[in-house]
């Protein structure tokens, strides 16, 4: 295996069109990954969609990662594939939670219709608002849900029931091998 001597083709094309937009990149198993600046995100995605040498006509996946304690806190990851040219690309973009445009990112649902529900799920779980989205409301959770559960600072035990929960009369405590009443011991929130 030879050492990578030159910039892989997709990354090179993006850097040629938008110098400085790609802040990091790597290549593994023949697929490239680029990290782009947030302000160039929409322009880069438009290029990837329309450029005749790239032709990414299929948006495979859009999700996010919460790096709590780092800046920028979130990272939105988009997977693209070109069905005509047969290559793939992973695009990462950092989304911070500070400043006037906190937790926002331009929508790409105008470029790929499939991104519509992915962005809604991403908003649902992480609270990232996709500006320009035609219908940005919760996709999976119910409307009365407060907060965004896949954020790392969401309490893992916190539940938001929609019906009144029946009391648990007795619960077998397997660690201490006796019956306990959760209302007395308050072992956990629910």
């Amino acid at each position: 295996m030879t050492a990578p001597a030159e910039t892989p083709p997709i990354t090179a094309r993006v850097e040629e069109k938008f110098p400085g937009a790609v802040t990091a990149s790597h290549q593994q198993f023949g697929d490239e990954t680029i990290t782009v600046a947030k302000d160039q995100y929409l322009a880069v995605m438009t290029l990837l969609r329309n450029d005749p040498t790239l032709k990414f006509n299929l948006m495979v996946d859009l999700s996010a990662v919460d790096f709590l304690g780092q800046s920028p806190r979130f990272q939105v990851v988009v997977h693209l594939k070109s069905l005509s040219l047969g290559h793939r690309l992973r695009v990462k973009v950092g989304v911070g939670e500070d400043g006037p445009e906190a937790c926002t990112l331009p929508t790409i649902s105008k470029l790929w219709v499939a991104a519509d529900w992915y962005e809604r799920e991403c908003f649902d779980m992480y609270g990232i608002r996709f500006q320009g989205h035609p219908n940005l409301k919760r996709l999976l959770l119910y409307e009365s849900f407060v907060g965004h559960p896949l954020r790392k600072d969401y309490d893992i035990h916190l539940q938001q029931p929609r019906v009144e929960l029946r009391p648990v009369r007795e619960r077998y405590d397997y660690q201490n091998r006796n019956l306990t009443d959760p209302s007395e011991t308050e072992r956990r929130p629910l």
Binding site: Y154, I156, H157, Q159, P161, R166
Partner: peptide
């Protein structure tokens, strides 16, 4: 499942 989504036992909702 012990998370935000799942009811911790059906008996919390109905007998």
């Amino acid at each position: 499942y012990q998370n935000y989504a799942v009811v911790q036992g059906l008996d919390r909702v109905i007998p």
